[in-house]
Amino acid sequence: MNSFTFTQAPAVAAAVQDNLAHEDAAYIGGGTNLLDLMKENVARPTHLIGLKKTGLAAIESLPDGGLRLGALATNADTAWHPDVEKRYPLLSQAVLAGASPQLRNMATDGGNLMQRTRCYYFYDLATPCNKREPGSGCSAIGGYNRIHAILGTSESCIATHPSDMCVALAALAATVRVSGPHGERTIAFGDFHRLPGDAPERDNTLEPGELITGLDLPAKGFEKNYSYLKLRDRTSYAFALVSVAAALELDGDTIKDARLALGGVAHKPWRDPAAEALLIGQPATADTFRRAAAQVLEGAQGYGHNTFKIELARRAIVRALKQATEMTQRTDDNAFLNSNP
């Protein structure tokens, strides 16, 4: 790690001030991604701003029936919060499918949104990478790209966003709360992460110095019919190759409302409103699910090693929707585990 200075910010405004006062400052939540990248010399901030004392760790109900997750709430405290388990079990399941218990105890909800890609070339300083070094080229296109994106890619980058939690947040239509040099603002979850385009160095739409203060979940939690299906090389402690967050509101056999978002397939959590529209008003059958899956994968493009993801994603969508309909992922006694039957 390069040398840097560290201050523990006493409050949100002080944290933002401190960030503006330094050339290459970074906020630090749990440190589980930032310190990893600093040890690899991929991230080289000269000043770190601790957020533990900014009072942002609470999880509290909102007057409109929603729930606010403080940016400094840990992933573990979020997944196991009674209101999240009861009202947003899709979110619980997605968080618990990620990382390890130790990492979830450290990782914060704000940091989870900001975690960077796991593209091997991004981590390898010896290879070109447009995200790490704009203009240097993309080693994954034409290189080894088994974990890379099949949707929304560009000629400059085919990296994926690695978060599980964010896939559920996309499906649940959360709102990101931000505080920065120009005051406070909110960002719809779908507008927070970006597609790579010709600026893959920018993962999201935060402006310099802006701090995530919290995440607001709308009242509707789809707690009756949901599934987070995560497919990976081993059944625990691995990043998703493809994951699906499916949430349904059913009236008998008819789908009244639907949410569908994918992880591991794009530069951002991939929610597809057109596929959701194909589900709404239809019977909850395999045919309906297959039509929605075809819609999601319509423009998908493989790059060689990752081409298998197109068929994998198609099948994963159908299975996740079936699981959400039947709630079959809960037939074993590990109610809190993502058991992927």
């Binding site: 990893d36 533990k52 573990a76 390890s100 218990p101 130790q102 990492l103 105890n105 450290m106």
Partner: peptide, 24 residues
């Protein structure tokens, strides 16, 4: 953060001490 050999308890909760700064 990948192996758990460095696990310690902070306020009763397990964490990986290799991905945490002492000053935190």
């Amino acid at each position: 953060g990948q192996c758990g050999a460095c696990t310690v308890l902070v306020d009763g909760k397990r964490i990986n001490s290799c991905l945490s700064l002492a000053v935190m």
